[in-house]
């Protein structure tokens, strides 16, 4: 996707599309596992995962075991 505002980007910012051209990608590491997992979920499941993170933090804050 191009946009007229692209020309206003700072010189050190890669234009959109340089990393997302639809070509096969090589597996890079830990980030890819998390992304792959997140992409396997539905939007509702993604929010549920986020809520799970929040619940875990709240459980730690309240000094009680998280519900798993």
């Amino acid at each position: 996707m191009s946009h007229p505002a692209d020309s206003a980007l700072p010189a050190d910012v890669a234009p959109l599309g340089t990393e997302a051209d639809g070509e096969p990608y090589a597996w890079e590491g830990d980030d890819d596992h998390v992304i792959f997992w997140m992409l396997s979920l539905t939007p509702t499941e993604r929010l549920a995962a986020l809520q799970g993170f929040v619940d875990s933090f709240m459980a730690l804050q309240n000094d009680r075991p998280a519900q798993v």
Binding site: E19, A20, E23, Y25, F36
Partner: peptide
């Protein structure tokens, strides 16, 4: 960017 790339392209064999 990596998420977009993984959404668009297949993993390399």
């Amino acid at each position: 960017r990596r998420t977009l790339q993984m959404k668009k392209g297949p993993p390399a064999q």
